[in-house]
């Protein structure tokens, strides 16, 4: 992905040299034409067309923000309810993600999810130990983490 972006910037510079116009507008034009060229030649690269990765990153950012707001609302409910009866607990979650940065992003996401907080990552990077505010919703939380977060992170690294 980084290689394709670098190539696109390089093509934009070539465009600037060809048109003998060294302004940011010329750079943007060249970047646009390079973008089309890379799209046309996408089957010659090892990775997929890099624009899809950028869309995936923006989606991940959106998920981050939505989860932050949702988790705040759920914490609010717990704190402001007159009878304080959370049922906290620690549960283990298996993850398929392998690279270190993926696990870092996953645990940041889990920490910002409603009612969960990562306590410990096991040494083989396979299991996350998560403290949950309300152990009754754990199955739902597990499903959420599996289906939305892991998929979104895999989409970025693909």
């Amino acid at each position: 992905m980084a290689f394709q972006i670098l190539l696109n910037v390089f093509l934009a510079f070539i465009w600037m040299f060809l048109s003998n116009d060294y302004s940011s507008l010329a750079f943007c034009k060249g970047y646009f034409f390079g973008f089309i060229i890379i799209f046309a030649l996408r089957r010659f690269f090892d990775h997929r067309f890099y624009f899809l990765n950028i869309v995936a990153i923006i989606r991940l950012l959106g998920i981050f923000l939505i989860e932050l707001i949702k988790s705040n609302i759920s914490v609010l409910k717990v704190i402001l309810s007159p009878k304080l009866e959370p049922r906290p607990g620690i549960f283990a979650l298996e993850t398929d993600l392998e690279k270190d940065w993926e696990i870092t992003i996953l645990s940041n996401l889990i920490t910002l999810t409603p009612g969960t907080l990562v306590l410990e990552v096991s040494e083989d990077n396979k299991t996350l130990y998560i403290h949950a505010m309300d152990i009754d919703d754990v199955e739902q939380a597990k499903l959420d983490i599996k289906n939305t977060f892991e998929e979104a992170i895999k989409e970025v690294s693909r």
């Binding site: 049922r87 906290p88 607990g89 620690i90 549960f91 283990a92 306590l119 410990e120 130990y129 152990i135």
Partner: peptide, 8 residues
């Protein structure tokens, strides 16, 4: 009153 502790 914690319910579960897998890490322990």
């Amino acid at each position: 009153k914690s319910v579960q502790d897998d890490l322990a």
